[in-house]
Design a protein around this nucleic acid. Structure first.
Lengths: 277, 277
DNA sequence: TTGACAATTGACCGGCTAGTCATTAGTATA
DNA sequence: TATACTAATGACTAGCCGGTCAATTGTCAA
């Protein structure tokens, strides 16, 4: 299992430098100091490696940002959002580079739709933030705001992603907060309508099914040692099959697990599930 | 020569779908209905093909936008800028896709710096527009505005580039004009300073030399048939070596050539040269 | 019709690729 | 130490890559 992580880390370094296609399995194994055969003990194919990378890091991004956005209080929400996002980009800059870099469609259809799905998850989180921050007013403008925020993020992150400049993150974020608020409070012409978004989302709008969530939770339970988190997961597992607990209790249980490093993604999924209902 | 264009067109289609690395010369020649050997009669290597593509289309983009920005009157300048840019993206969507797609560094150093150079040309054009539109006020904010505009362009162009949606370009542009004006007129916190930009630009700040410009002009003169444009080019060629003409005359000569399909890039270079002085 | 020349072909080359598997090294138990 | 097991190796395969070039085909003036 540790071998798997080693390969993922070292491969990511090479992918960020050269791209996915241009990096050979031989290069990866050389860089790891292992044999080519050993690679195929951990991953069935080179494609499976990239799938694992995307799953791992996109879950990290989504949960990092979701944690900030789902916190109480709107005070510094926008500031914290940008700050966390950029920190997360910075922390996993190799992966972020790979994401920016890789052809949107040179991947398999499977990989493309996977990325698309995570992207939509992220957009959903950002949209919920916009709704909280700007309330009613945002109804017609929220998708335009979403696009503007995404534009800011991608353009400004170039500064530290490509040029590797030492950035004063706090003033960068302060300037983006001002820009975002300006747009949100003064914009009158929206371009992206609900309908347009629905057309875009149409082909791949798969919510994870209840069965899928249960499966993930149970795997999670097996993976972690005895602790409050494990107890909470067991109770939540029960609640998935037979809902009996008070919403406040469920919320508490979610709070119990959402800071455990191996439960973040599960917490995110569960929050989506229980809030839905 | 026609063969060269055929290859460029067909190759671009494949590159847009699969990416540069993932497309083989064999695929390209099959798609053209020619033999592999014939490819190497037109291009010395696969790399030379991508260089030709980048040169061809980036010149197109730059001149298209520069023509709009260098027109008199600030009335609909911003509107026309966005409109032309998106039309140009749309017209050459395969190439635009390739640009978005391709790893920033999977190219050679040569290709990377080539792209970087064209990118800076485009930024220069946009900056001159910002200065004209917002005057003094833009001094401290211009680079932030540039980044915001670039962010809008890349995020919103996804709508028709990736999703291939039929877009009401006029309302899209109107909404972006409002956003840009809002930011330009109300922003107070700038993040990107002159110094920061200088650091970014440092490694590759090559202006084309006078000799280089003369070379390009002479090649252009050979390429086109007798016409007012050719006469104008010959006079401008003379003016490059021995400046004698009144600036107004030079400006008129430039106006003569800037709408000829094969002189646009030369006109752009010359305008930069004569305005410099 | 012939012959000189240019355009075009596709078999071929060396090198690299993803992936396999018989063999070997390492380790834990009895 | 002997045994049984797993972990790890790297030579190997089949196939694709960019690029070359001797051989073929097409063209046109004499």
């Amino acid at each position: 299992m540790a071998k798997k992580q080693l390969i993922m880390e070292k491969a990511l370094e090479l992918f960020a430098k050269q791209g996915f296609e241009a990096t050979s399995v031989q290069q990866i194994t050389d860089h790891c100091g292992i044999s080519k055969g050993a690679f195929y003990l951990s991953f069935k194919s080179k494609d499976e490696l990239i799938v694992a990378l995307i799953d791992h890091f996109m879950r990290q991004f989504t949960t990092d940002i979701d944690l900030v956005v789902s916190e109480e209080g709107d005070e510094d929400l926008l500031y914290n959002f940008y700050y966390t996002t950029f920190q997360s980009f910075n922390k996993h800059s190799d992966f972020a580079k790979l994401l920016m870099k890789e052809p949107t469609q040179s991947f398999n259809e499977e990989l493309f739709s996977k990325l698309h799905h995570y992207n939509k998850s992220l957009e959903k989180v950002i949209l919920s933030m916009i709704e909280r921050l700007y309330g009613e007013r945002s109804n017609d403008l929220k998708y335009d705001l979403l696009f503007c925020i995404k534009g800011f993020m991608s353009t400004y992150s170039e500064l530290f992603m490509i040029y590797k400049l030492p950035i004063d993150m706090e003033s960068l974020v302060r300037s983006l907060v001002e820009k975002t608020n300006l747009l949100a409070k003064n914009m009158t012409i929206s371009f992206i309508s609900n309908e347009l978004i629905q057309v875009i989302d149409q082909p791949l709008n798969e919510e994870p099914s209840l069965e899928k969530i249960i499966e993930i939770v149970e795997k999670n339970i097996e993976d972690i040692e005895d602790s409050i988190e494990k107890e909470s997961l067991l109770l939540l597992r029960q609640e998935l099959s037979e809902p009996t607990l008070h919403p406040a209790i469920v919320k508490g249980l979610l709070a119990n697990i959402q800071n455990h490093p191996h439960c973040k993604w599960t917490a995110y999924l569960l929050r989506g599930h229980f809030v839905m209902k």
